[in-house]
Simulated assay, not measured.
Amino acid sequence: MTADVWLPLPPEDIEGLPEGPRYLFWDGGEEFPADPGDCVFYVVPYMKPSTVGVRPLPAMGAVQVVQTLSAGIDHVEPGLPHLRAGVRLCNARGVHEASTAELTLALILASLRGVPDFVRAQDRGEWLGGFRPALADRGVLIVGYGSIGAAIEDRLEPFELARVARVARSGRATARGPVHPFTALPSLLPEADVVILSTPLTETTRGLVDAGFLGRMKDGALLVNVARGPVVDTNALLTQVRSGRITAALDVTDPEPLPPEHPLWRAPGVLISPHAGGPTSAFAPRARRLLVDQLNRFVNREPLRNMILTTGP
């Protein structure tokens, strides 16, 4: 048996890969590059449907590591029951923080300052003046304070905010201030002008932003979702934005991709980007650095980074 490593980036484009394994390129095509049973380190194709990424898992009897190139792991979870015990699942912490935080800030500023209205007015040749809200002096609530949430706060720091509140699965102290548990949301939501969702999709966070959550947001608040679409109850969100009480900027939706006839496209006060948080020019160099580091650790039997779980009974 060979010790194969399946990569969704051409191995010849990755400098620094350790000697030993056989590196094979597979980005989700119909044909596998070799016998999946010989794969010991599987890097899941990036930005492919879940059905693509999990397809080889039932045949990967020798795999020891499954590495995603996304921060979330929800797209590979359906395939985990097919794996033997002891397989390590790692995510791409450190790859997407810069790009996702950049887009988050762009969505906030575009929504508050009315950039979509300006673009439509430009198409009509119309000079659209008026008074618009600024980000300065606003209160921001970050729901999901992992590495991406922290990177978002890094970029918000120069904008003269009135306050930033942070929420995660469990409370803790940080140098910037407290991170509150999810149980604190009812008291924090009414104070936030901008609510940013950057939490992973788990059974706890699925549908977290429901009618009750949205109803606690203050009038005129902006909801920004750069997490996963199912974190938000789409029907509840539609009710709120149609009333004009809140607005939304969504990089992810439920369903996704959003069908052409879906009412979210035409809902008032909603800005939609097509899950563009991660795929930028910043992705490839950071992904390559992560893979080189992880594979050197793997070959040298050193602890891996970003371990999320180990399969087992």
Rank of each mutant, 00 (worst) to 15 (best):
7 L>S: 05
8 P>D: 04
14 I>R: 00
20 G>V: 08
26 W>G: 01
28 G>R: 01
35 D>E: 04
38 D>C: 02
39 C>F: 01
41 F>H: 04
43 V>H: 06
44 V>M: 13
44 V>P: 14
49 P>H: 06
54 V>N: 00
54 V>K: 05
56 P>L: 03
57 L>W: 07
61 G>E: 11
62 A>W: 02
62 A>D: 15
66 V>H: 06
68 T>L: 08
74 D>A: 09
76 V>C: 08
77 E>L: 12
79 G>K: 02
85 A>H: 04
98 A>S: 10
102 E>W: 00
105 L>Y: 02
105 L>M: 09
112 L>T: 02
113 R>K: 15
116 P>Q: 01
121 A>I: 06
122 Q>Y: 03
122 Q>F: 04
124 R>M: 06
126 E>W: 13
130 G>F: 14
136 A>C: 09
141 L>M: 03
146 G>M: 10
148 I>W: 00
150 A>C: 08
153 E>H: 11
157 E>C: 01
159 F>Y: 15
159 F>G: 06
161 L>G: 05
161 L>Q: 07
165 A>Y: 04
166 R>C: 05
169 R>S: 15
173 A>P: 07
176 R>Q: 14
177 G>S: 02
178 P>F: 10
179 V>W: 12
179 V>M: 13
180 H>I: 07
181 P>S: 10
186 P>D: 02
186 P>F: 07
191 E>A: 02
193 D>G: 10
197 L>F: 08
197 L>H: 12
198 S>G: 13
200 P>Y: 07
208 L>P: 03
208 L>I: 06
209 V>C: 07
212 G>C: 08
216 R>L: 11
221 A>K: 02
227 A>R: 10
228 R>N: 12
232 V>H: 12
242 R>W: 14
244 G>Q: 12
249 A>I: 05
251 D>M: 09
252 V>W: 07
259 P>V: 05
260 P>A: 08
266 R>E: 15
269 G>N: 11
272 I>Q: 03
278 G>A: 14
279 P>G: 04
279 P>Y: 11
281 S>I: 04
286 R>L: 13
288 R>Y: 00
290 L>T: 01
290 L>Q: 07
305 R>C: 15
307 M>D: 05
307 M>Y: 03
309 L>Y: 00
309 L>G: 03
